[in-house]
Amino acid sequence: MLAEGLRKMFDKKAALDGFDLAVPAGTVCGLLGPNGAGKTTAVRILATLLRLDGGRAEVAGHDVAREAPAVRRQVALNGQQSTVDGVLTGRENLVMWGRLYHLSKRQAEVRADELLEQFGLTDAAGKRAKLYSGGMRRRLDLASSFIMRPSVLFLDEPTTGLDPRNRGEVWREVKRVVAEGTTVLLTTQYLDEADQLADQIVVMDTGRVAAQGTPDQLKSKLGGDRIEVVVRDADELPVAAEVLGPDAEVDPDTFRVSVAVADRVAALTRVTSALAARGVEAEDIALRRPTLDDVFLAITGHKAVSEVRA
């Protein structure tokens, strides 16, 4: 999957403004960014749902603008909302999609049963999909994307609105299909989701690529580990900040002070003894690797909308 200089205007405002992307076959690319960064627009263009105003894009070896039908035979799209039909049973949903992908009735039924088995839905196959739990519906939706064993799968915020257990289930299914060789473009607002699933992360902001790399590369860009001190009392915050040095970041709401450090364990010892010497009894002192939240904040200057954390 390849995109070069994608441009898309909505009412004279650029939703995509020179967006580039290269995803090697069989890998997962996480598109990360706040609402309105252009993630969904990028996916919709690559899935041949939107015409692009500039640039070019290739998916599964075909140009999305000139060879849209060829692209459509190779890709599957899983949008933000569930396209599962609640009135139909789980099996009927899959058979319907199989038929729309031009399988014969018999083939569609065989494939539906295979997928129900794979996605752990065999027991619920005959139940109407509206009686399914959120996670089951999502799995059914994913299963319907796999009818044709697509070479490219677009997942647009696949776990938005799911509880942690169901998110875990969806992640497991995604990992399984990636192991079978599917290329996945995943958009998400959840940093831990990208961390879990993606080989490569592209951070988007205002229609462009703000940063990209593997999750670890992005984290190390921030200058490695941070030491974090949590104090018991707001009065102790200034003292702790003084101990950590001039670059310390203070979060008065959580009584937390942190700073980037190069010498991990030595710094920990130094800070612990310095705090003890000044009579500050810390609630918690810890070394931690930066999270993608930190990366995001550092790159875009604003926090990601992240309601669920691992």
Binding site: R72, L77, Q81
Partner: peptide, 17 residues
């Protein structure tokens, strides 16, 4: 609104269908 139309369009099915 539910994205069903999008999936129809992103699939190889006949668009007049």
């Amino acid at each position: 609104d539910r994205g069903v139309t999008d999936r129809f369009r992103a699939s190889p099915m006949s668009q007049t269908g």
